[in-house]
Each structure stands twice: as C-alpha cells, then as structure tokens.
C-alpha cells in the first residue's frame, strides 16, 4: 500500500531542516555545500510526491531542471572553493569575508 502524501511531505520538511542545520552549524565550506544539496533533494522529494498524487508528470520535469541547476551550482561552488583555498589555505567560511560589509 502506498503511503499517504502527508508522510512524504513531513519527511521532506525534516530533511530540509537538517540541511538548514548543517549550513548553520558546520564550519567547513564543503560540508555547507553538501547540506545545500540535501535541501535541494528535500524539495525534489516534495515535487515528485505531488507529481505522483496529482497524476501530472510536470513535477518530475521540474525536478529534472532542479538537478541540472544543482549540478551547475555544485561545479561552480567547488571551483570557488578550490580558488579560495589556493590563495588562503583555508576552508573556514569565517576567513572568507573579503566582501563582507
């Protein structure tokens, strides 16, 4: 028997909150990037659950686009991390505040 949609939505909410906690708590840029991936996946789960329960394939197409953007985001984010690490030898976001006002 299929679980009702509320279960999927609550699971997705908890996953999103765990991702937010990771961004707030951790002091490592790579782990922060991974937490962002976690949040994106939580949203994907919501899209797919609604797509299934409303019988419309459009939600899955949106998830396809989210995956595309997530891949681009991860690539550019990691390139920035490498670039910063080359100049400053650090992965700690506290040391990356050159643009901070």
């Amino acid at each position: 028997m299929q679980a009702p949609i509320e279960y999927y939505l609550v699971l997705s909410a908890v996953l999103f909150a765990i991702g937010v906690a990771g961004v707030v708590i951790r002091r490592d840029v790579i782990v922060i990037l991974m937490s962002i991936e976690l949040m994106l996946n939580a949203v994907n789960l919501t899209f797919i659950a609604f797509s299934r329960f409303m019988g419309s394939v459009e939600g899955q197409v949106i998830v396809f686009f989210v995956m595309t953007v997530a891949a681009a985001e991860a690539v550019v984010g990691l390139a920035i991390v490498i670039s910063v690490f080359r100049f400053r030898q650090t992965l700690d976001p506290r040391d990356m505040q050159l643009l901070k006002w």
Binding site: Q2, P4, I5, E6, L9, V10, A13, V14, F16, A17, F50, R52, F53, M54, G55, S56
Partner: peptide, 17 residues
C-alpha cells in the same frame, strides 16, 4: 521543521491519482 510540518496538516491532495 515544525513550521513546515504544520503546513502539511491540511492535505491538499488526499487520494492518489
């Protein structure tokens, strides 16, 4: 998490299509 889960309380789509 509680805030988001509270939104789920009222089911938008009840039955599986």
């Amino acid at each position: 998490c509680l805030q988001l889960a509270a939104l789920v309380h009222r089911p938008a789509v009840s039955a599986e299509a």
